[in-house]
Design a protein around this nucleic acid. Sequence first.
DNA 1: GTAATAAGTTAGAGAAATCTAACAAAATTT
DNA 2: AAATTTTGTTAGATTTCTCTAACTTATTAC
Lengths: 218, 218
Amino acid sequence: MNSLTEENYLKALFNIANETGEVNVAELSKRLEIKMPTVTSMMKKLSEKKLVHYESYKPLQLTDKGKKEAGLIIRKHRLTEMFLVDKMKLGWEDVHDIAEQIEHIQSPVFFEKMDELLGYPKVDPHGSPIPDKNGKVVWKEYNKLSDCKVGETVKLAAVINTSSGFLKFLNTREMRLGLKIKIKSIEAFDKSITVSYGKHQAEALSNIVCERLLVEKQ
Amino acid sequence: MNSLTEENYLKALFNIANETGEVNVAELSKRLEIKMPTVTSMMKKLSEKKLVHYESYKPLQLTDKGKKEAGLIIRKHRLTEMFLVDKMKLGWEDVHDIAEQIEHIQSPVFFEKMDELLGYPKVDPHGSPIPDKNGKVVWKEYNKLSDCKVGETVKLAAVINTSSGFLKFLNTREMRLGLKIKIKSIEAFDKSITVSYGKHQAEALSNIVCERLLVEKQ
DNA sequence: GTAATAAGTTAGAGAAATCTAACAAAATTT
DNA sequence: AAATTTTGTTAGATTTCTCTAACTTATTAC
Ligand SMILES: [Mn+2]
Ligand SMILES: [Mn+2]
Ligand SMILES: [Mn+2]
Ligand SMILES: [Mn+2]
């Protein structure tokens, strides 16, 4: 059994590896807001437990065992987020902080019931894939809205940044996952994009926003 | 903010006081499965935080502040149990261990939503009262089934022992809260009681069982 | 009312998770 | 290639929560 602290390290290792490929002590330290010497000693501990491959000055790597355990924690996190949105009617901007806590609950039956009630969902409310019961996760290849061309019609599939602030911004524009979006024009100067969707005929979105919206081409 | 450990001490103090009136170090130590010297030092700490009145060799007492905080944790516990049974379709014998963990979740909105979805319940699945938003709890006066007379018809209102084993036993006899039970006879020798209810015409219940069943007279 | 037992405290130590200060290695810049 | 900066490690201390051993106080038994 891993402690809550160890679980948070595993999850961070898994997430950073999925985002940037390689994980180093400095990045992990920044992500967890824990000083580097503390991270180093935890890496030694997780190495003892065969969850991490650790060698001084080398990039950090989860073992297969570590990947599986991390995947299962993320599974609990994302199932929880889905449950909170679908069954408890909380906003997608409110669920992350609660899921950060509930992901550590030890109770297979609790999460199996969640999964069942939700109808075995494949993605969470932010479009992130839910790892399977072996902790395995398959990422679909999406495009950033900022990489699309004028005239294309795309479907909003996922959001990269899941900060409450960003999600609340999307709420004000009535943007939801599954939304069909048409690219009307792109401003060369600042790469902002004007799109139309639903009742919105011409909504201007900054490049910063468009880089955080993942879409599927139709 | 109190730590998870502190919360568990507060809750135990509250529960023991409600069961037996007075709380002493030995009882608290037994309940929490923590050695007495550890309990003593935690009492000093909680006393510092104005949550417990502590004097050497005197009975332990929660302050008003301590009672409120304990009541609010128990509120979260019992709301959770109700949610797990009513909304997640888990058995009343399965929910306590999960609630023991979820009661420590920090998220007012999460528990308010639970309360709302449940329609502001007053009791949990075991018949225990749910403290209000100020941590206040009012116990109804129930009778033990073992104290009833032959010929009386009573309603099952609560169970005292909420161990999974006892609740599974009640399941095998199809006994639920709200059930109307008629006392048919009492065996003088061992104080076992024969009752009828639902489809059950004559079910013999040992005194040990009857002492754990709280009923309301009709 | 003394002896035995139970309950409670003090003292000291250990595990887990964190920190700061100082040093060492690696990468980057010039 | 030397200097500088970034990254990572070691050493030692701190906080929280726990324990055991030894001692003290209170209660119960005789
Ligand atoms: Mn999340
Ligand atoms: Mn998510
Ligand atoms: Mn319970
Ligand atoms: Mn209960």
